[in-house]
Design a protein around this nucleic acid. Structure first.
Lengths: 152, 152
DNA sequence: TATTGTTATACTCTATAACTATA
DNA sequence: TATAGTTATAGAGTATAACAATA
């Protein structure tokens, strides 16, 4: 018998890999957020764009992309879709850039979505005390900074 | 130094969202791992399959998929590619299942890749003390379990 | 020259549906 | 009936290259 029968659990050589668990946790959390935001016909990436525009009215599309790590080429269809659904409006800054703002509809959708995000965040943090939450947040930001290639 | 008319630094409303930082950290770490593994012509998903087969010789393709959260439909091309590159071999168990094993080439490639993974893990954990590392790992596993939908 | 925004394209991972062959 | 494996296809996210217009 080179290994235990298939009815038993497999050995999981990835169980103690921080990078693997980081990915699995991220995928699981994103899937849940995606489901929850679907109520408002929003995808997570669209939601993040709305949040940045709301916090920085008049921001340009390129600036939003740099903030979120989304390339210009990929921002175009996202903003285009948000504009088409009347969630975001574009107003010319100069003749090559446009200022982005939320429409009233966009602000309303964002408001509803923020409740979903707050619930999601609560669920993520549940079971952690202050010290653990700080350690986790420090780890995540540190990893992001140390591993970032900043190509967007 | 020409600047756009808007502010130099944007407000980042996502800075304190655990879910967002989890995703950004995961994406950054995966991109680094992907680059590193490319030396061995392996993608992260392929590497994880090799690890599970190595730890469970004779495992079936479906079992590997369940362990890794990869659906049967997506396992087929992954294992097919690994077999075509002579990293994995299939041997019939019954007439619908096949046992997977690493070839000698597969074991050699895995050995080289494990060094890359070890370096990656070190880099991920650098700067954390024991307590922080435990808190982070507990958080990640807890999130994965609480948010998992187990549909694969 | 550098930047904004766009289109086209491709790759990875993920997802469902439909199908066969077998247990 | 349930499972193993396959194929086809689609949706997201991410990536590069190339282009026009403008700063």
């Amino acid at each position: 018998m080179t290994r235990t029968p298939s009815k038993d659990a497999l050995a999981d050589p990835l169980a103690n890999l921080l990078g693997y668990q980081l990915r699995r946790a991220s995928v699981a959390a994103m899937a849940a957020l995606k489901s929850a935001l679907a109520e408002n016909d929003l995808r997570p990436a669209e939601m993040s764009v709305l949040l940045v525009i709301d916090a920085n009215p008049g921001v340009t599309q390129s600036e939003v992309g740099r903030c979120l790590g989304i390339k210009r080429a990929n921002m175009a269809p996202i903003v285009g879709s948000l504009e088409q659904r009347a969630l975001v409006e574009r107003m010319p800054v100069d003749r090559r850039s446009q200022a982005l703002r939320l429409t009233r509809t966009g602000a309303r959708v964002l408001g509803r979505s923020q409740k979903i995000i707050a619930a999601h965040e609560s669920r993520l943090a549940s079971g952690m005390d202050e010290a653990a939450a700080r350690a986790v947040m420090r780890f995540l930001k540190d990893v992001r900074q140390r591993f970032s290639t900043e190509t967007s």
